[in-house]
Structures are given as C-alpha cells and as structure tokens.
Design a protein around this nucleic acid. Sequence first.
DNA 1: TTGAAAGCGTTACCAT
DNA 2: ATGGTAACGCTTTCAA
Lengths: 359, 359
Amino acid sequence: MMSKRVNIADVAHAAGVSAQTVSRALNNKGEIRPETRDRILAIVDHLGYRPNTLARGLVTQKTATLGLVVPDIANPFFSEVTRGAEEAAHRAGYSLLLCNAHEDPVREVEALYTLEAQRVDGIVLCSSRLSEETFCTLMARLPTVVLVNRESSEGDLKSVRVDDEAGALCATRHLLRSGRRSIAFLAGPPASQGGQRRAQGYQLALSEAGVPGDPALTVACAPQLESGYSTAQQILTNHPEVDALLCYNDLVAVGALQACAALGRRVPEDVAVVGFDDILLAGLVTPPLTTLRSDKRGLGAEAVRLLLRKLAGCTDDCENVVLQPELIVRASAPAGPEQEETLHGPLEAIHHRRPRGDN
Amino acid sequence: MMSKRVNIADVAHAAGVSAQTVSRALNNKGEIRPETRDRILAIVDHLGYRPNTLARGLVTQKTATLGLVVPDIANPFFSEVTRGAEEAAHRAGYSLLLCNAHEDPVREVEALYTLEAQRVDGIVLCSSRLSEETFCTLMARLPTVVLVNRESSEGDLKSVRVDDEAGALCATRHLLRSGRRSIAFLAGPPASQGGQRRAQGYQLALSEAGVPGDPALTVACAPQLESGYSTAQQILTNHPEVDALLCYNDLVAVGALQACAALGRRVPEDVAVVGFDDILLAGLVTPPLTTLRSDKRGLGAEAVRLLLRKLAGCTDDCENVVLQPELIVRASAPAGPEQEETLHGPLEAIHHRRPRGDN
DNA sequence: TTGAAAGCGTTACCAT
DNA sequence: ATGGTAACGCTTTCAA
C-alpha cells in the first residue's frame, strides 16, 4: 500500500552517486564538488527524502534530542519553563522529549530511565523530588543532566534556579515591615528543595526581626490550589492570631485567598497573602497577589543553554546559575503605611492596571 | 573516562548465551526456558542494561514515541491538552516528543518534518493553522496523524475536537436570552478552524433571534490576553452600542474584561463577557467569567487513544470524536432576570465559591 | 572528489 | 529452546 520510505540509497541511485556522497551533501561535510552537492540536494528535495535520525543516532551516538522532566506540565510555572526550554532547544536544532513526573518520585525515576533508553543527549530535570541518595545512584549512569530549582552535591552536576532563600527573605521582610507579626508559611512538598530554601529565608527574616518562629506555623502542602485552600483553612482556624500567609507558590496562594474568603477574613486587612512565581493568574485574582516574580522561561532556556554547553565539552565557565526573583507588591500584601509613598506604592498601581499575560 | 555503555552482547556474554536469547528474555517473546530468562533478567538488572531504543526502532520500524504539536505550550488550554496526552501515552508505554509551533505555520511545518525525521509512530496535531492545501500535501508523507480541534477533508484523517459551533450557539443564545442585543465576536486567529466554527454558531444564534448580524462586530485577534485587551478596546470604542463580547478563549476574555475596566464599562451591567475553554483563570478573575467548559485533558487523552487504535490497525470503529462543551454561567454574563431562578441561578453561586484548580 | 566496506545495537528469520 | 546471520539506514574510515 504505502510505498516504502525513501532512504539514502534511493537518493544515491537516483543521483548516480554513492550513499556516501549523498551523506556528504546533506551534512555539508567532507570535500564535495559544489555542483554535485546541488544536484543531490535537488534530488533529495524532489524525492522528499528525510534522513532517519534513528540510524544517524545509532552511528553518531548523538540524537539531537533532549529530555525534559517536570513534576506537572499543567502547572503554569512548568509550562512556562517548558516553553523556554523548547525554544532554546529548537533554536539549537534539538528536539524535546517531555516527561510528566506527576509529582511522583517513582514516575520521575521511570522518566529518567525512559530518557536513558531513548539515548537523549542530555536531560533537564525540573524540581526533582528524589532523595539525594537516589539521585547520586542514578546520575552515574544517566546522560548529562542539568537541574532546575534543585542543587546536588553530586560532582559536576550543574543547576539553574531562582534564589529561593533571598525571595522568601525579601517577602517575609516585606510582611514584617508592613506590620505583620504572625506569619505562617505554607511550605509546599517536603521533598522540594525550593520549599526548604524558602523556609530558610523565612526563618532568617523572622530572627532578624526578633520574632519568635513558631514551628507549628510552617506547614507542608501540595503545590496546588486545593491544597492551599485546605492548608490555609487549617492554619487560620488553629491559629487565629495569624495575620499573614507566605505561600509556596501562586496556586497555593490563590487557594489561601479563597480560604480567607470562606472564613470571613479580609485580605489584606486581616490577613496578608504572598505567593511565589508570579504566574499569569497572580495579577488577575482579587485581590491581586503580592508575589515573587521569577523568570520562568529564562529558567528553562538557561538550563538548555547550560546543557548544550556541557555537551559541547565546555567544562570551564559552566557555573551554576541563580536568578534573582523580584518582589511584586500588589494588594494582597501591600506596603505598610510608613512605606506607602516610598518603596512600592507607585509600582502596585502599575502592576494590576496593565493588561498582562506574557511575562 | 566513562566506561562504554553496556549492550546486548555484553549481557549475552555475561550470561553465556547468545544476544538472541537475551532479546527473547527482554521482550518475553518466543520460546525460552523460564529459568534461562530469569537468569538473564537478573544479569540485565545487575549490569544496569537498558536496550537502545534507536537500534530497536531501526529494525522494528517502531519507536514507541508520539509527536505532539501545539501552537503554544504556555497557553493553559494546551498545557492541559498536553497533560492529558502525556498521561495516555505514558500509560500505553509511549514517549512524547513535544513541539511548540509558536502560532506560526512555518514553525508548524518544521515541527512536522522534525517528527517525520524522528520516525515517531504517530502525531497529535493541535489546532493546526495550516491551509487545507499545505495540509493534504504534508499528510501524504507523514506518519499517522490525529487532529485536535481541527478537521480535514483528507481521507482517513481522524480528529478529536470540542463542538465549537454548538458552544458558540449556546453562549450567544444565553446572551440574547439575558437581554443583550449587540453582541460582538472576538474571533481569534483567522486560520483557526475552531474560530471559524464558533463564528458559525454565533451567526446562527443571531439569525435565529432575528438579530441583524453586523460583520464589523466580528473581529479577528490573537489568542492572547493582550490581544483581547486591544481588540475589545477597539470594538467598544468604535461601537458604543455593543453590550456583549463573545470571546475566542478565556485569555482573550480576560483581556476584554480589562478593556472594559479601562473604558469604564461595568461588567456585566454595561457589557457582558463570555469566554471559551474554562481554564483555571476563568473562575478566578473579577467578575468570574461565564465560559464554555471543555474537557481539555480528555481532548489530549482521546487523541492519543485514537492514534494508538489506528496504529494498532483498527480501522473500523475509529470515528471522529466531538466533545460537547458545557456552558458555565458566572457573573461576567449572568442569566437575565426572567431566567434567574430557573436555569442557571444556583449553578453560578457554586462555580465561583468552591476552590477549583484541577478541572 | 568520490566510493567501498565496516559497524552502530537491536530484532527477524531460519537453522539446529 | 537456543544460536547464527542478515538487515534496519546511516556515518566513519580508509582507499582510490
């Protein structure tokens, strides 16, 4: 039925040359007479020949394919990271094999095995939830890996991440400056390194200010809206004195907003809410979220760039990359009265009046 | 440095059998003595051997990999579709090669060529912006394709889509019933078949109601928030009588909400706004969006299922799938006074009080 | 400048 | 039940 796929031999035959010469014409490699090359390329075009990347990969030991592992592609944070990674990969002539780890370490390991079997040239691993131990065992056999939002003690493992600690520090300071005294932290998945670092920034800000940190006010939660809702509800119920919620990400923060509404707590009058990431949603809910903006696409793009540099054998200047998040002050946690006119007042107005959607 | 990758010959040697037997053990295929198999599998495990899928694909002409092409992976609609597709693919033992067409027909063709070269077993092509002509030319040479949100006259090309016409019809009727008389349509990309079908539903509802359709009230726009903003602003300025905006998708609708705010038009009092898709955002903006909910993950999952059925040679029951969207009435376009207590009144309250985020 | 042969790692096919 | 050989489609290496 379907005629057999045209291969390099067919092209060679049609051009009256050897397969070798066709290969040279295609890869612009080795000496070849220009007119021969042009003739061959014309035939390639006419026959609609596409080199089989499997065969090519088998011999070159390179697939021009990268693996990308994310905890949840439907999470806006990771779809932005993915977009950035895809663009950078595409620009460099690489394809992207996407794996959704589903917030599950088992699935994550599975994904890494699959990528190994597929012989991807390198892997971008986002927000890994694996233990450091599992990690080191795996890395030994995997192709080159670059981590996103996670670091590892493992030798030459490079990473790209946002400065979680600085972000949480900045946000917590902001809350303290605006007069909040009992700040709870919705910490995200315990296995998340980002969550752990944010916890440190949060603690640091508290001790700076001489505020006694109550361990009961740091509560783990899944990185989704629903979990933010239930966790915030629980915190606000058990600790009525809480007047601010620092959230693992914007989805959790939106859930927290809804919990406040459900409990009749006004935001920001009774409770201030701060998110993390500044996804599109953040500026559009009511009240708009104060949050830490991170360059999500940049994270993905930078990870791919680092990966490609490592693949190119560039060992020297491949440093870890730490991107600084930017505090975006909106109505869910405004500046206190004393800072109103100075630091963030004007910004706030700008940030939620303008149409946005592509940050 | 890095020891050579272990291959099937190494395993065979270690087990004292032929490569053939190792292959049989691995694929559970052909006759093999159970104890031999177990012994081999133990060695496989011990050596950490992973079959090279390239080599396997080269000989079997199957890669266990599907291609997914989307216009924009950062668009929440498509990241949900992707999530559904990835899950279905993973469950069936397939990997997913992701291509972002970037809302650009040229990139789309490029992506299809890449997938062809990668010898994916099949392709899920979402919301293609290609002309029917380009399309037919390409399809002839591509591996099996299933379309999402697009249909084609091309022979055996199957598709999965939402019923755009029915959705737009339903939404427009809803607006008319609630007393709106001058309804504009922000139509999305002209090349979008979904947009075209929605235009038909919109027109049909207008003629049903005997409302004269003004062609100037159907305006193309990019499927993003910013474009919704500028397009709505333009419409509302040029046609002050407009009292409702039917939008291509929820992002456009949110932009339209912002335009209304900027122009001092109250929603829904002065202008009603309706979106499409019911992405997470839709229920969380102010006012919450009335919209047509589509099963985004289901779309992706169903497309993969259809694709796999076709690959399995199942030609008979592979029908096109058309999913019905569901009108979700929220405050941006409430029911009119006369329908308040009957149809949608109670629903509305439910839809924006509950925490949501995983629809 | 071009071609022939070998080999990448696996499975299919036919022997044994 | 197991093994040998060829083949998948390409690039690398060497020879002409």
